[in-house]
């Protein structure tokens, strides 16, 4: 420990600051999402307020065109953003890591084929893939959106996993493990996964942010979770027509989206700085 703290004090401090800022941003949104299950200021479809009211003590974030409370919608939007982000990243990670490791281990032909496949899928816009999946399922639902975004993210995760795995495979400790008779399965579990996760984790956080934004885009296009679910993307779409008369309707969900995405990235960065015991490249 002592060697570590004398080594790089400035970077450590910076790591701490980003970590805490990220934790606070993400923490507030996660809290809002969890609380929304038990309590919201108003019911989602409760048209109690006047039309397009400005933020006030009664309606902390104002109201929309139908007089519904925007703060309630923001809280439920937080829940949906988190569910979509976690779900999409989980699906993307499982598919991506599995195919990425397969590609890294494969013979030259299969490896090339998978690498090309990843590249083609990446060049294909995630949103378009998501729209195709939604079209194929013939209905827009939260589950469809999660599945679609997860599939859309998987080639990015796959490509990074493939490269990281190849890097680790070239290390001496893999040769050392093989020399002592470790099977490939055990090498993947004990040596490859732990060594790619610190790098992959940061990227998955980035993907989480992209998934949340892509969900907002899908909802904006009417392909996300159907009403009455309030997603930040749908809030943006509904506020579109009144952005000049009631700007808070668009600004607040936009800010929430921004805070979540930047918070996740800072948190991931800070976590990597804290918990990567090797920090090989200083």
């Amino acid at each position: 420990m002592s060697a570590e703290s004398t080594e790089l004090p400035p970077r450590r401090r910076r790591g701490n600051a980003t970590f805490w800022l990220g934790l606070i941003l993400v923490g507030v949104i996660v809290l809002a999402g969890i609380v929304s299950f038990f309590w919201t200021p108003y019911a989602l479809s409760d048209m109690a307020g006047g039309r397009l009211e400005a933020p006030s003590a009664a309606h902390w974030a104002g109201t929309d065109r139908l007089g519904r409370d925007l703060f309630t919608q923001l809280m439920i939007g937080a829940r949906i953003a988190l569910i979509v982000g976690c779900g999409a990243v989980a699906i993307g990670a499982v598919i991506g890591v599995a195919t990425g490791i397969l590609a890294a281990f494969a013979t030259r032909f299969l490896d090339d084929a998978l690498a090309a496949f990843f590249d083609i899928l990446i060049a294909f816009p995630t949103l378009l893939i998501a729209m195709l999946v939604v079209a194929a399922r013939e209905e827009a639902s939260l589950g469809t959106a999660i599945l679609a975004l997860g599939i859309g993210l998987s080639p990015i995760v796959g490509r990074i996993t493939r490269i990281l795995t190849k890097q680790v495979l070239g290390q001496d400790y893999i040769t050392a493990a093989r020399v002592s008779g470790t099977s490939w399965g055990a090498i993947v579990y004990w040596h490859i996964l732990p060594n790619i996760v610190p790098f992959l984790g940061v990227n998955l956080a980035l993907q989480f942010g992209l998934a949340v934004m892509a969900e907002a885009s899908l909802s904006y296009l009417g392909l996300g979770a159907p009403p009455p679910n309030a997603s930040w993307g749908r809030m943006l779409q509904e506020a579109q027509g009144t952005v000049y008369t009631a700007p808070w309707g668009a600004v607040l969900p936009g800010l929430a989206l921004f805070a979540l995405v930047i918070g996740i990235n800072l948190l991931a960065d800070g976590l990597r700085d804290r918990f990567d015991p090797a920090r090989r490249d200083g």
Binding site: Y173, T175, V179, G181, D276, P277, A278, R280
Partner: peptide
């Protein structure tokens, strides 16, 4: 491997898993 033969490498820093 392991049963009949084992190897010690040149550079112990890279021959050990940095995260274990």
């Amino acid at each position: 491997r392991g049963d009949a033969v084992a190897t010690v490498f040149q550079e112990p820093l890279t021959a050990l898993d940095p995260l274990m």
